[in-house]
Amino acid sequence: MKSENIILSVFLFSQTGIGVLGNSFLICLFISVFLSGHRMRPIDTIVPQLALVNFLVFLSKGIPQTMAALGLMNFLNEIGCKIIFYLHKVSRDLSLGMTCILSVFQAITISPRTSNWARLKARAPKYLIPSSIFCWIFHLVFSSYIPGGIKGPRQNRNISEIQHYVYCSHKLLSGFHASLVATFLFFPDAVYLGLMVSASGYMVILLYRHHEQIKQVHITCLSPRASPETRATKTILLLVSTFISSYLLNCILATYMSVIKSPLWMMHTSGFLGLCFPAVSPYVLISSDSQIPKYLYALCGRKTTHFAQITD
């Protein structure tokens, strides 16, 4: 095994372990909070879904990519490849969709009451669950084409007809058909990215105006700490910027790989970039969202009280 592949395998293994741990923590925390009957925010219906789909990204991409980086190339048969690629496509698109829903909802939440978004502020929480359900159904159906083109790692076919992805392969399209399919597949991503960029830009403008108003009003009783809405907005902006940067870098690398014959280290690098957001996002939420430590404290306090009652 080459030195660069060893280094990448260590990075992939570490990234997968860190990402699985962080997303598992969020999933278990929100399930426990829900079962305990604790009052939750509307946005808390989306955060555990984001953690779940990010966990599925590591299950379908992080673990297989790490195994391939360690030299295990033929650990999947054709059926396994179809399942893994379908699961990765659905979870990756859902991760984009849930991040988009979070950013749009937060933009509506912090919008002034005098703006055009004010009418949606009261009704927006009611739309979160239907929006997430629609997102799940859409991508489960939209990605149903994936298994048809995925092949096993070993195929006795013309090498020019097959695009290899380290541990699986995909049948190549050519000409106008390939361009049409690529445009069709990229359209949902373009819509999500457009909504996220628009919502993020709107939130940045609102935060800037709010900051300027605070600078102009010199009242000593004002608390220097940011409001919960401001902290939540900054958290969503950090999530969106992390997603867009890793997404664009991965797209650039993937486009370059489609033009030239890619070495193994470049494929592993593409996989690493694709896993950056799922690995980082839970820790951004844990460190930036003040409500998560409160949930954890409430659960720990409840368990401590329950244990004390039993021992007494």
Score class of each variant (00 low, 15 high):
G152H: 09
Y202I: 02
P224Q: 11
R225Y: 12
S143G: 12
F184V: 02
F176W: 06
G175Y: 09
P153C: 07
K151L: 15
T220M: 13
L173F: 09
V197L: 04
Y167F: 07
Q216Y: 07
H210Y: 00
N156W: 13
F176V: 14
Y202G: 03
I214W: 08
S198T: 00
Q213T: 09
P188W: 08
S179G: 01
Y165H: 10
G148W: 08
H170I: 14
H170M: 14
A199E: 03
S200C: 02
Q216R: 12
Y202V: 06
M203I: 12
S174D: 14
I214F: 09
H210M: 02
A226E: 00
S144W: 10
N158A: 12
L185V: 02
A190H: 03
R209C: 10
F187Y: 07
S223D: 06
H177P: 01
I219M: 05
G152E: 06
H211G: 14
N156Y: 07
G149M: 15
N156M: 10
Q163N: 11
T183P: 00
Q155F: 13
I205W: 04
V191M: 01
P188V: 02
C168H: 01
K171L: 07
G148M: 13
V217Y: 04
L207Y: 08
F186Q: 14
S174C: 03
I146H: 09
C168F: 09
H211F: 13
I162V: 15
S200T: 02
C221V: 11
L195I: 03
S174I: 04
G152C: 11
H211S: 15
S169W: 10
S174N: 02
H177M: 05
